[in-house]
Amino acid sequence: METRDPAAEPRLATGALLFGRVLDGEGGARPIGWEAAQGWTPARAGEVLWLHLHRTTPGLRDWLRCKLCLPEPTAELLVSDKTRPRAFREGDALVATLRDLNFNPGAEPEDMISMQLWSDGERVLTLRRDPQQSPNEICALLDRGEGPRDAGAMITQIAELMIDHLSGAVVDINDAIDRLEDNPQALAMEERATQIAEIRRDCLALQRHISPEHEALQQISRDAPEWFEPHDRREIAESIARLRRNLDDINISKESALVLQDELRARAQAVSQDATYKLGVMAGVFLPLTFFTGLLGSNVGGIPGSDHPLGFAGVIAACAVITVVILVIFHSRKWL
């Protein structure tokens, strides 16, 4: 039977570390490398190890199982692409999957990307596949001495930054709707219809991701371990409320886009009806003239005025009289 050296397992994930910090409990942090992180223990009370990892690195799942003694399902969740937001407590650890806006070049922000998270109060692991802004922003805060002081604050600040990004996207959608409402004639109907359709797609995409994220944050608020302090729970509760407001705003934006689309459809229908009406009026004017001139143009003998020098002028005059009579009749019936 094949055997393997358990001590070799942690080295399988070498290269997974994007950056690491040791929080000093006062808002600052010092960098830490991969090798130093393997045997890390707090040098003093209040220190927290934060490792930001690339979850697709080969061997990372085995490292999580061996080094952190995580159960197989949890290790699989942390490195998988099953990215629906969720959160649960596992003993004294918190496991979560959250989603952030996608600010990578060539991507739509509404195509949200996921980040897996694990923490036992002394260590925080964040794992991602595609680059994200939130971890980089927290790292910059820590390097300036203005970052989170403990694991609970780290998790709540990650959630807050994600919601900040989401709020910006919601504001952009609202601004786009306001521009369409304030300047209904500024764009051609085709371009206006395209923008409205894009707004509705963006709203649906955000709504699809926000609802499970809202549930995940609620789960963290309810079931977080004891190291998640009361002020952290209050911060999460505020984040939940903000996310709920964003979800309400998205629903309103979606309804507003639907109203704009109905108005645009009504305008297009009115334009079509107006064009049809004008064609009907023109047909009503020219149909008698066509009949009259067709009758006089028949290739038979005895057409009145055919040999008279003013015959053509008489026909023109008769057509003018017929046209005036028709227009008077249309105007009296308010068809014009």
Score class of each variant (00 low, 15 high):
Val22His: 02
Val22Glu: 02
Val22Thr: 01
Val22Gln: 01
Leu23His: 03
Leu23Ile: 12
Gly25Ala: 15
Gly25Asp: 10
Glu26Thr: 14
Glu26Phe: 14
Glu26Ile: 14
Gly27Gln: 10
Gly28Phe: 03
Gly28Asp: 03
Ala29Met: 05
Ala29Thr: 12
Arg30His: 08
Arg30Trp: 04
Pro31Met: 06
Pro31Val: 09
Pro31Lys: 06
Pro31Gln: 09
Ile32Glu: 02
Ile32Gly: 01
Ile32Ser: 08
Gly33His: 04
Gly33Ser: 08
Trp34Ile: 01
Glu35Gln: 10
Glu35Pro: 00
Ala36Met: 05
Gln38Asp: 10
Gln38Met: 12
Gln38Glu: 12
Gly39Trp: 06
Gly39Leu: 04
Trp40Met: 07
Thr41Phe: 05
Pro42Val: 07
Pro42Thr: 08
Pro42Tyr: 11
Ala43Lys: 08
Ala43Trp: 01
Ala43Asn: 11
Ala43Pro: 04
Ala43Thr: 05
Arg44Trp: 06
Arg44Ser: 11
Arg44Val: 05
Ala45Tyr: 07
Ala45Ser: 15
Ala45Gln: 13
Gly46Met: 06
Gly46Val: 09
Glu47Gly: 10
Glu47Thr: 09
Val48Arg: 01
Val48Tyr: 03
Trp50Leu: 13
Trp50Met: 12
Trp50Ser: 04
Leu51Asn: 00
His52Arg: 15
Leu53Val: 09
Leu53Glu: 01
Arg55Val: 05
Arg55Asn: 15
Thr56Met: 14
Thr56Ile: 15
Thr57Asp: 06
Pro58Asp: 13
Gly59Asp: 09
Gly59Trp: 08
Leu60Ala: 07
Arg61Gln: 11
Arg61Asp: 02
Asp62Gly: 08
Asp62His: 10
Trp63Thr: 02
Trp63Cys: 03
Leu64Cys: 02
Leu64Arg: 02
Arg65Glu: 05
Arg65Lys: 12
Cys66Phe: 12
Leu68Pro: 02
Leu70Thr: 02
Leu70Asp: 03
Leu70Ser: 02
Leu70Ile: 05
Pro71Ser: 09
Pro71Arg: 10
Glu72Asp: 15
Pro73Thr: 06
Glu76Pro: 07
Glu76Arg: 07
Leu77Thr: 11
Leu77Ile: 14
Leu77Val: 13
Leu78Arg: 03
Leu78Ile: 13
Val79Asn: 09
Ser80Tyr: 10
Asp81His: 15
Lys82Asn: 14
Lys82Gly: 11
Arg84Leu: 14
Arg84Val: 11
Arg86Glu: 02
Arg86Asn: 05
Phe88Val: 07
Phe88Thr: 03
Phe88Ile: 08
Arg89Asp: 01
Arg89Glu: 06
Arg89His: 07
Gly91Val: 03
Gly91Asn: 11
Gly91Ile: 02
Gly91Pro: 06
Asp92Ile: 02
Asp92Asn: 15
Asp92Leu: 14
Asp92Pro: 07
Asp92Ala: 14
Ala93Cys: 11
Ala93Thr: 04
Leu94Asn: 03
Leu94His: 04
Val95Phe: 01
Ala96Gly: 06
Ala96Arg: 00
Leu98Asp: 00
